[in-house]
């Protein structure tokens, strides 16, 4: 998780920042899913003779979170493409020089 956070803060390239954000997000998902695990339980799909199941609630929440995550990622990437078109760069430190030119 910390690596993702580190990439978000330190990377100059905006695409790399998005990758970092996704890494960050996946590790948060992992925290939730690990809380739902029950020792000796199986996947929450009804099978005869099994009484212990893992908690289905975090699974549902994270499943939808993944899909929403890809939706936001795609909007972010679209923004990056527009930034590239407007400024000609996706490197953060190169913007400052160009802001005056507008």
């Amino acid at each position: 998780m910390m690596t993702g956070f580190y990439i978000v803060i330190s990377a100059n390239n905006l695409v790399k920042k998005i990758v970092g954000l996704n890494v960050f997000q996946t590790s948060v998902f992992m925290l939730y899913i690990s809380m739902g695990k029950v020792n000796g339980g199986t996947a929450p799909i009804l099978v005869e003779g099994v009484t212990t199941y893992s908690n289905p609630l975090p699974h549902v929440l994270i499943l939808t979170a993944i899909v929403v995550g890809v939706a936001t990622t795609s909007v972010g990437l679209a923004l990056i493409i527009r930034i590239k078109r407007a400024y000609g760069t996706v490197e953060e430190n190169e913007f400052e020089n160009q802001d005056d030119a507008i």
Partner: peptide, 27 residues
């Protein structure tokens, strides 16, 4: 491994599939 088969399915198809394709498209 943590019994979340549905989530694993989604992560493999969405995270590894579509996200990667879209990022490559941006690159």
């Amino acid at each position: 491994n943590l019994d979340a088969v549905d989530v694993a399915f989604t992560e493999a198809s969405v995270g590894a599939g579509i996200s990667t394709v879209l990022m490559l498209g941006t690159l």
